[in-house]
């Protein structure tokens, strides 16, 4: 086994991303979906770091973007959870399909 290079990280990130994708699609629970989104975001951030590390070391941008992604993820999680909470108060469950949200 040679030492892990760019392609290892990229393929790993892709795999992680697809797992998150699968989770988003299959989870019926809103919190479950949110967690899948977090996985996807992490996969994306990992890509940035990998490119920064192995390809464009001179450019600091690769290290910056994960920071911003984390910040935005924090904001997103806060807002999403607030919405979920409000929704839960109203419907008493978090099932995406139980009450078709986009209908009506």
């Amino acid at each position: 086994m040679n030492s892990p290079g760019l392609e290892h990280y990229l393929i790993f990130a892709a795999l992680l991303f697809c797992i998150g994708l699968y989770g988003i699609v299959t989870r019926r629970n809103l919190i479950g979906m949110l967690m899948s989104v977090e996985i996807i975001l992490n996969a994306a951030a990992l890509n940035f770091v990998a490119f920064h590390r192995f390809k464009f070391g001179g450019d600091v941008a690769g290290a910056m973007f994960p920071l911003f992604i984390i910040a935005i993820a924090a904001a997103e999680a806060a807002v999403a959870l607030a919405i979920i909470l409000a929704l839960f108060r109203r419907k008493r469950n978090l099932d995406v399909l139980s009450d078709n949200l986009l209908k009506n």
């Binding site: 699609v25 995406v96 399909l97 078709n100 949200l101 986009l102 209908k103 009506n104």
Partner: peptide, 13 residues
Amino acid sequence: ATGGAQVYLLWSI
């Protein structure tokens, strides 16, 4: 078009 957001998502993916 069931109105289920997740179904749309599934199909788009």
